[in-house]
Write a protein that binds this DNA or RNA. Structure first.
Lengths: 200, 200, 200, 200
DNA sequence: ACGCACGGGACACCCCGTTCCT
DNA sequence: AGGAACGGGGTGTCCCGTGCGT
């Protein structure tokens, strides 16, 4: 753990926050300077690829923070439905204790980079979203296979809808600067899961 | 006399598209020049407030395009549940025939301007979202009052969840460049509405 | 004497003043608007050639004003030396009652257009200066031929020096915003003429 | 370390030439770009005050070039009259080997900035002209005090006239693109000095 | 005959992103 | 790792000239 690595981690942490709050285009290297307390010389020493390379790594760093939360939820005790509820609650926690300020990095990247750009960030956002959807989908599929959940809705449709709802709710919570949308969405999502996936 | 108004409308139309696709920070006045075929001299004649003023008006223009669709859906014949389904389908149409390229302008603005900025765009996004939520909420409340819908879930929670889901699905559709998320989300949302709001 | 001619003359008078004070590059059409009380529409009707054509005509107009003064001096009674003194005094009058505000238009044009430009103004300045030099030169030559002046200095050298001195003095008077340089220069020039051109 | 200073000097040198040839209003920053080979970014780094600040410093630089010539002349050996002749010859050299292309910077500034503007350039032109006049005036006064020159004309009048004549001749030389006016003016000025200042 | 809307073009200045030197 | 240096693009302003309307 050399001094350089500490600085590198420091830069990543601050950059992740800056990019997630201001967006890639909206964040300037000067913003990163003030956030890190470093000058361009220092930043470029650690990230020779410049703003873009730093953004890519910062994005990965941010996603890691979210994944830590998800890992805890998906490993929760109980049956499939309990774990689904735990996952929904984890997303709902974005209101009370966000793992990253500025909203969900994946959604932010998806919105900002839906057109143009080098595509690296869009690619990463897509891959992450795929992982997250797989998480829910597999959980549903396994529950259905085990008979803990009804076989009605396709796991993919459930996963997509669950993620759409919670991501949309994070967006609304950010817009309103209020947790209520997340609370409502979590509650209704759980009701939806109960209504459509409870074993008969 | 009307000459200038035609140009102004032309600028607004193109600017709405550019801003919605590239974001406010990501779009340069030069981008607007190429999109409109005008030079800065011409653009600034019609929008003396510069990029920001133009963005504000372009946002309003974009929202108007979405509102036209919603107005048709909310005036659809049938009972409350039918109208809710029509609304959901309208949002789902964002995949097949988007009223604006680049995703939902309100969500885009909400994501980009959640921090900093003059706040004018965030304010407009918030007001628009409030209007949309009121649309759904009133529809649910009226249906419940008339006994067409069960009294269970609060109209506000339903409205918030419906919007979160459909907006999230638009984001996913943009990320995947595929309509499937919108189709799935619409289908599941209608199932959720049926399950929780159908009169006993 | 149509109404249009009055306006045209009005524009010329004001433009001559504006151009002579601010220079061609330093004067904007907007300056001409405020000076004339007209709008571009009116100005361009009378001067379709635009700023440059107007400047050329305004320059000629300004030179005419100076020429009126010179004509009076050169036609003064008395011998050659008396007329030379009268000419020097005419230039010295630039301090007390300038025929054009902003200094000598010929010198101004010569300074501003010594490089580049379309050359029309420089050409006019050159021609005018040639006429003025010829005025002095012929006066000296005639005086020498008539024996009123000594044959020493060449008429051309005297004319060039006299003009250089008085033009330089106008420049100094403008710079100092004081007539003294003109007074001194006129006095010394007359002394120089007396000393070198008086018949033995 | 000296890297920046070299560039700064380079900019000054080129800017002095550009401004002296085209005038302040007639020279664009783009002209400075092509002349220096730098872009606005680089230029503004060295001259944060922009075009005006650069013009002020470039003017000073240009005047320094002229002053170097004058210093050599005023320190020439010989009596007062010899030094006056040397000064006149120095100005006459403006034709054969101009210290600055585009004419005398002081006269150019005096002509262009006789009205309006921030006045900084006019102020500098005035101060420089005062120095130059003092140079001649003191030389004459000292000569008169020492009895090398006749006490007739006032030193101030001689200085003013000498400068007016030589500056006017520079203008004529520029207008005609010919050295002759400078030659003539120098010759006649020396004749004038001899005639009026030679000790009896 | 003149005002005004319109729009192309250039211009000044600023700041961003990056490199190089220390 | 700091800071100077600089290329490049971006924004907003103003200017010049046209053409329509009155």
């Amino acid at each position: 753990v050399a001094r350089g690595d500490v600085t590198r981690e420091h830069i990543l942490r601050q950059a992740a926050s800056v990019f997630n709050r201001l967006g890639y285009a909206g964040a300037s290297v000067s913003d990163l300077e003030t956030a890190t307390g470093l000058r361009t010389g220092g930043i470029y020493r650690h990230f020779p690829g410049g703003k873009e390379a730093l953004a890519v790594e910062a994005f990965r760093w941010a996603v890691d923070r979210v994944d830590e939360r998800l890992a805890a939820a998906v490993g929760a005790p109980g049956d499939a439905m309990a774990r689904l509820h735990a996952l929904v609650d984890t997303w709902a926690d974005y209101g009370a204790s966000p793992p990253m300020p500025g909203g969900c990095p994946v959604m932010n990247a998806a919105i900002e980079h839906d057109a143009g750009g080098s595509g690296a960030l869009r690619r990463q956002a897509l891959d992450t979203m795929d992982r997250w959807r797989a998480l829910v989908r597999d959980l549903v599929a396994a529950g259905q296979a085990r008979g803990e959940l009804s076989a009605g809705p396709s796991p993919d449709a459930v996963a997509t809808t669950l993620l759409a709802t919670m991501e949309g709710a994070i967006m609304l919570a950010g817009l309103y600067r209020d947790h209520a949308p997340l609370t409502h969405a979590a509650e209704q999502t759980k009701a939806y899961l109960d209504a459509t996936l409870s074993p008969t």
